[in-house]
């Protein structure tokens, strides 16, 4: 058993400042994950040179890979830091913020673009009201199995971090939002505005921006079939294009 674990962390003090690497050597404790180590650094924020520094800033909340908050790049791979177990990682462990979003500070980034994309694709059910309107539609179990999987998306950012097409300069909505449009286009009432979602996906930043690299599906921590979703939405968009042509 090693006595210590070394972390090389890419830090950045503010949105506009330059990034720098800082090394921390902390005592090895069995059953650690990256977050428990970041907590140890908080409780004793001393870098490898023995200098007292500010604790590393990162985002986290649930610590059980269901909120999506603590996504970062660990040893070059994007993933949640709560489920990154120290014993399974190569040492030294490098931590970097995701590169496809503006850095807020250290490992914390601003993912508001992903939430904005959910607005663009109208990822909601339009309800007549929240009063008692009786039960919803009966649906076969296999419908639920597909929808549930898609609905596990926690807007964590892994898929777009891994995507070669998604970057800080363009306005691609990304795999997560495309997959959400598939989820709502299969819902018995949300599909009433399916065409509006397709209109969005036909525009610039829509489905045509996907380069079919298929990195997204590999990176998804919830194994959501993102490439299937992209293919399905591609079919729906083509169908709508044809309908538009015949209407014209």
């Amino acid at each position: 058993m090693p006595d210590t674990v070394t972390f090389k962390i890419k830090r950045q003090d503010s949105e506009s400042s330059k990034s720098y690497w800082e090394t921390f050597v902390i005592p090895y404790i069995p059953n650690s994950n990256v977050i428990s180590c970041l907590m140890d650094i908080q409780a004793n924020p001393e870098n490898s040179k023995g200098e007292q520094v500010t604790p590393v800033v990162w985002e986290c909340n649930c610590l059980e890979e269901v909120c999506g908050s603590c996504t970062m790049v660990i040893n070059g791979k994007v993933r949640q830091s709560c489920s990154a177990l120290v014993d399974q990682l190569e040492k030294p462990i490098t931590l970097e913020p995701m590169s496809k979003f503006p850095v807020v500070r250290d490992l914390a980034v601003d993912r508001s673009r992903m939430f904005a994309a959910l607005k663009k694709v109208k990822a909601w059910v339009t309800a007549d009201g929240y009063h008692d309107l009786g039960p919803g539609d009966r649906l076969p179990p296999n419908h639920q199995e597909v929808a549930y999987k898609l609905s596990e998306c926690m807007t964590c950012g892994c898929c777009v971090e891994a995507c070669p097409q998604y970057n800080l300069e363009n306005n691609f909505v990304g795999a997560a939002a495309i997959s959400q449009s598939r989820l709502f286009n299969m819902h018995p009432t949300a599909k009433n505005i399916a065409d509006e979602r397709l209109d969005t996906l036909m525009q610039e930043g829509g489905i045509a921006d996907c380069g079919n690299a298929q990195n997204c599906v590999e990176a998804c921590p919830k194994s959501i079939p993102l490439t299937e979703s992209i293919a399905e939405m591609g079919r729906q968009v083509s169908g709508k294009l044809w309908r538009n042509i015949f209407k014209a």
Binding site: W124, V125, A127, Y130, D132, P135, Y148, H187
Partner: peptide, 14 residues
């Protein structure tokens, strides 16, 4: 029932 209407992917019977 409301949450079902709002799209929650509840498990289903046969």
């Amino acid at each position: 029932n409301l949450m079902d209407r709002l799209g929650v992917t509840f498990n289903r019977t046969a």
